[in-house]
């Protein structure tokens, strides 16, 4: 674990793995909930957790490295199920990368249980880990990816909450609303949420 000051009020904690980052994130949330830790934002990412809005980042850094951080506890909440039509334009490319047929890509994606490692890129966009194999981004990003596109890139899968440019491989479509500011909570997926994708028949 390495803790680096970020300006005068933040600390970036770097871990050796995504699992360690997940465990530290859970521990930070626990300590904030009990009132042990005063911090405005806790932002997990691939290998790091950012703590923003701290009174004394360097003092926390000294404490932090001596913390005994248990593995992230198993989450009690229900798994979020997202129905998917596996009709994406990049299904064949992903199958070719993996050396399998398209049906096997669907089977692998729908069989895995994913977890939201972190959010970013757009409100409600979660980077989900749990993919059994990796896949490169597209060489040329699309200027417009439709909302609801289920996509893969690197070790992650995710769902575009709204239409935006993007370079991920599109394998399917969902009607599930990922982000609705009028809903509480607005984001369907938050860091730590468990997710499964369930295949539905393509529209006639």
């Amino acid at each position: 674990m390495r803790a680096m000051p970020v300006g005068a009020h933040a600390l970036l904690v770097e871990l050796d793995s995504g699992e360690e980052a997940e465990a530290l994130h859970a521990e930070l949330l626990r300590r904030r909930a009990t009132g042990d830790l005063a911090v405005a934002e806790i932002v997990p990412a691939a290998r790091t957790v950012l703590l923003d809005g701290l009174e004394a980042p360097l003092r926390l850094a000294e404490h932090l490295v001596s913390w005994d951080v248990p593995p992230a506890p198993a989450r009690a909440e229900e798994v979020v199920e997202i129905p998917v039509r596996y009709d994406g334009p990049d299904l064949a490319d992903v199958a070719a990368h993996w050396g399998v047929d398209e049906a096997e890509v669907v089977r692998l994606h729908a069989a895995a249980e994913f977890r939201v490692a972190f959010c970013g890129f757009a409100p409600g966009f979660g980077y989900l880990t749990g993919l059994p194999r990796e896949v490169p981004r597209r060489a040329t990003p699309r200027t417009a990816v439709p909302a609801g596109s289920v996509a893969l890139a690197g070790p992650y899968t995710g769902v575009y909450p709204r239409s935006s440019p993007g370079g991920w491989q599109l394998i399917g479509t969902t009607d599930t609303v990922l982000w609705d500011p009028a809903r509480v909570p607005a984001a369907l997926l938050a860091p730590g949420t468990r997710v499964r994708f369930t295949p539905t028949a393509a529209a006639p």
Binding site: V6, G7, H9, A10, L12, E41, V43, P44, A45, A46, R47, T48, V49, L50, D52, F118, G120, Y127
Partner: peptide, 10 residues
């Protein structure tokens, strides 16, 4: 660099 959290003024 793997994606990481960003602060105001970065």
């Amino acid at each position: 660099l793997p994606s990481e959290g960003m602060v105001l003024g970065a």
